[in-house]
């Protein structure tokens, strides 16, 4: 296509978009841009994010072994973990008491986090999950540091994993509840 026909076509594209936005019901109806626009007016209207959207990270505290893998892999170093060892009762009667890592502190600083998801990927014990919730802004930046109880609350909003295609060999993972 030559330069000039291409440029005219470009003008047509913007004009058509403007027309579609102004008159979504055809030229005879009154213009209603709020219907024709692809955007929504956010605080008044909300879109539901897709189920696997990366909104906020949830922590299943019981599964976490304080192995620190997530904290070390996090590119921003915005996960803070402290823990101590505890004796747990033996699995079988007569066995030795087990040793267990207990979390004292598990904070994620969402002011630093860039939502890369590496921590969720890297956790070997299914303790971190993505939740699609996104409305957790705060007037004070320090309040974006979510401690382990706050992270645990997000667990309720984590959707179930989608089932795999039929015939798939892999076992469907379950979100621990």
């Amino acid at each position: 296509m030559g330069i000039v026909p291409g440029m005219i076509k470009g003008l047509g594209v913007t004009a058509k978009t403007a027309y579609d936005t102004m008159f979504p019901d055809g030229p005879l109806k009154p213009p209603s841009p709020s219907k024709g626009a692809v955007t929504v007016q956010y605080p008044h209207e909300k879109e539901t994010p897709t189920a696997r959207a990366r909104g906020v990270i949830a922590l299943q505290e019981d599964n976490c072994t304080a192995c620190m893998l997530c904290a070390r892999e996090c590119p921003d170093w915005c996960i803070y973990i402290e823990g101590h060892k505890e004796k747990a009762p033996p699995r079988r009667a007569g066995g030795k008491p087990r040793q267990k890592n207990k979390l004292d502190r598990f904070d994620i600083d969402f002011a630093l986090c860039m939502y890369c998801g590496i921590c969720v990927e890297v956790c070997p014990f299914d303790a971190l999950f993505w939740s699609p919730e996104y409305e957790f802004s705060e007037p004070r930046i320090a309040d974006l540091l979510h401690d382990k109880s706050r992270l645990a609350e997000w667990m309720e909003t984590v959707p179930d994993f989608e089932s795999y295609e039929s015939g798939s060999e892999a076992k469907v993972r379950k979100v621990p509840r």
């Binding site: 978009t17 936005t21 626009a37 007016q41």
Partner: peptide, 13 residues
């Protein structure tokens, strides 16, 4: 307004 409509959004409301 026109710029918003041409980009399929509403502009200031």
């Amino acid at each position: 307004k026109m710029m918003s409509f041409m980009q399929s959004r509403l502009g200031p409301m």
